[in-house]
Design a protein around this nucleic acid. Structure first.
Length: 650
RNA sequence: GCGCCCGUAGCUCAGCCGGAUAGAGCGACUGGCUUCGAACCAGUAGGCCGGGGGUUCGAGUCCCUCCGGGCGCGCCA
């Protein structure tokens, strides 16, 4: 509703400026600095001042006096040096919201959007850095879907890479385990992804002491690529089991996927060979005849490097004929846009509890009809900012193939790393140097096995939340208390990962993450629960929710919204879609989180200032109840976009 | 060396395309529970928006420069 009025205001202003001054301006609308100034501010007089050589204030006065009437607008006021502040017709606005005239705006670009996120090496348990990736990606997907965009969620699985090979080295060469023994571990007491977490760290440190052991890695990689031998079989076993573990971990946070494209199929279905041909034909890469890259197929550094002076070329195919990670990524990116002329086969990996199906790539033609994936019109790759150089190379590859539109629509949705606060390092028993102790944060290393595992963190959050829930609701069933505690824990975690903008390094701190007060997920959840409590209490008293549409006429709305308090509250609550759209445009899920927090603050204000149930005036009480229902719905909608549930009680 | 990111209240961070008096949470200090349950609310203190130049009607925001910090720059992924 807010958006529609904004569009209408901009349209009328633009048309009027064109006919009155013969100038075509893009009318931008702002939020007035102070809410008392009105709902929308139009600074168009400033834009015109230069062209017309007149004071902005004079132009603003002319515009305000002469602008054709807009039904949803009550009046225009000139303020400051030339702002035109717009005041909505409050009764009509409230009545419109009540009548459900929201109407989601149609997406500008109806094509399918692909969002790739999570993308964890399937060789060990997920850690908090992976959580930031998955939560950012998943929330962005929810934002896009909320705005009506069709979205496909991909989680790329590098099941044939060095990291998986290293764990196989650990099982096979260091521990002399057979396939059967590893299989037994998968169903064993200790979570398999935790077992691999430790083993991977051991293998990494073993390489440090015994560099000759790197031959084992080479042998294993070779076996994996050839698809033969016990190491290859073990690699599949390990990767598949770890993928299952990751999917379970992410499901706890409400993160689900549509398809898992795997590197093994990129290899077996010769995606690379196809891409290689295109790259060669179009001259995007060339065979280096001499120098340090002799015998390699390289991409010219000038194509992607920011360093104009002496750009280093990027090796795409090594002199031994094997393709690098970037090369494979170019092929994968081409597939995402439907530019490869090839597709995977798919098989169903599992069905989520809500019925959603998860598919995985395969190299075997299926006997039954399956969905198809890829061929998107816009691609977001949620990848940590440390890989921006490689992402630049991938985009340069598309450009070198003259897929300029697609290069334009390849978006590196980058974010900064999650480090640990020094305090949390000490808590985890990680040794710190004097220097580290003084830093605001300390980077952790998966190879050393240092860091916070995602499941450990979630477990700890649930235990902390459960203590609170138990103390407040000892009479409720244990199972339900656990469910509520889990919802609060996930709310806290998701909000924590979302409250920072993407290019801010998060210094993860247990104490902060475990907090449920202030600007946190539980604060927002609590507001929604409180709204629900009012309605629950109403029914307990034998009253029922009034027929709002029948009782709250536009006149009644106008009366109730005449006061500044209610009007500002309602206005804030009506802007969920505005906030989401703004967050999509700026690529910042944090903006939705911030909005949710402000919405909760607004409701807590309302809750504190206006006892709903004890209100004596009939119209006022009906209005307050409607506000309660409206707030609860808007809070729930915002939380839903953040991937956070509203518990039944708190 | 080159490139990218960051520097805003004691701490952690917001600040939309340059706009009106720079915001929030935490922490500190004062107050508020008669259950629509305080995981809350009200209030106080706290700022040369890293420094310096510029652009303009106007700069936390854009440009240049310096200082400080982080991250990249492999025939690893």
């Amino acid at each position: 509703m807010f958006q529609q009025i904004e569009q209408e205001v901009a349209r009328v202003f633009r048309a009027h400026v064109r006919s009155r001054y013969g100038a075509d301006v893009q009318v931008v609308l702002e939020q007035p600095k102070q809410s008392a100034f009105g709902e929308v501010a139009v600074p168009v007089a400033f834009q015109l001042a230069k062209q017309l050589k007149q004071a902005p204030r004079v132009i603003a006065q002319q515009l305000a006096a002469e602008l054709p009437a807009i039904p949803s607008i009550e009046k225009l006021e000139v303020a400051g040096n030339g702002y035109i502040n717009v005041r909505f017709h409050r009764g009509a606005y409230g009545h419109g919201l009540l009548a459900g005239l929201e109407g989601a705006a149609a997406p500008k670009d109806p094509g399918k959007i692909i969002v790739e996120h999570t993308n964890i090496n399937p060789n060990k348990a997920a850690h908090i850095g992976h959580l930031r990736n998955a939560i950012l990606g998943d929330t962005f997907v929810r934002m896009l879907r909320s705005a009506g965009c069709p979205v496909e969620v991909q989680n790329y699985i590098d099941n044939t890479g060095v990291q998986v090979a290293d764990v196989v080295v650990g099982f096979h060469y260091l521990e002399h385990q057979t396939i059967e023994q590893v299989r037994a571990l998968i169903g064993g007491e200790r979570p398999f992804d935790y077992v691999c977490w430790d083993l991977y760290a051991r293998v990494s440190s073993y390489y440090g002491d015994h560099p000759e052991a790197l031959a084992w890695r080479a042998e294993t990689l070779h076996a994996i690529e050839a698809g033969e031998g016990v190491q290859a079989e073990m690699a599949h076993l390990v990767a598949d089991a770890i993928v299952q573990a990751h999917i379970r971990t992410m499901l706890r946070l409400g993160v689900v996927y549509d398809v898992l494209p795997r590197e093994s199929e990129i290899l077996h279905l010769k995606f690379w060979a196809t891409a290689f041909e295109q790259l060669k034909q179009r001259g995007a890469i060339h065979l280096e005849a001499e120098g340090k890259n002799k015998g390699c197929w390289v991409m010219r550094g000038a194509a992607f490097s920011q360093d104009a002076e002496n750009p280093d070329d990027k090796v795409i195919v090594r002199s031994n004929g094997t393709v690098t990670y970037v090369g494979k990524d170019i092929a994968y990116q081409m597939w995402k846009f439907g530019l490869l002329g090839k597709d995977f086969y798919y098989s169903r990996l599992l069905t989520y509890p809500n019925g959603h199906e998860l598919w995985v790539s395969t190299d075997q033609a299926p006997k039954v009809q399956t969905p198809r994936f890829g061929a998107g019109s816009r691609v977001y790759n949620v990848i940590d900012s440390r890989q921006s150089y490689l992402q630049d190379v991938v985009v340069a590859g598309l450009r070198a193939l003259e897929y300029n539109d697609q290069a334009e629509r390849s978006i590196h949705f980058s974010y900064e790393m999650v480090a640990l606060s020094p305090r949390t390092c000490v808590q985890l028993g990680i040794a710190l140097s004097e220097e580290d102790r003084r830093r605001p944060y300390v980077e952790v290393s998966g190879r050393k096995g240092l860091g916070v595992k995602a499941d450990d963190l979630v477990n700890e959050l649930i235990e902390t939340a459960l203590k609170e829930v138990d103390s407040r609701h000892p009479e409720e069933p244990v199972e339900q208390r656990r469910r509520v505690a889990a919802q609060i824990a996930i709310g806290a975690l998701r909000y924590f990962m979302l409250k920072y903008t993407r290019n801010s390094v998060i210094a993860f701190d247990f104490q902060e993450a475990l907090s449920f007060e202030g600007e946190t997920g539980p604060y927002v959840q609590y507001a929604a629960v409180r709204a629900g409590n009012i309605l629950k209490k109403l029914e307990e008293r034998g009253e029922s929710v009034p027929d709002f549409a029948a009782e709250l006429t536009a006149d009644a709305m106008a009366r109730q919204l005449a006061g500044e308090d209610f009007w500002q509250l309602l206005l804030a609550a009506s802007k969920v879609d505005v906030a989401i759209q703004r967050a999509i445009d700026s690529g910042e899920p944090a903006h939705v989180a911030k909005y949710g927090f402000q919405l909760a603050q607004a409701f807590n204000n309302f809750y504190h200032g206006y006892p709903v149930l004890s209100e004596q005036n009939r119209e006022r009480k009906t209005f307050l109840l409607w506000m309660t229902v409206y707030f609860r719905n808007q809070l729930a909608k915002t939380l839903g976009v953040l991937g956070i549930d509203v518990p039944v009680y708190m």
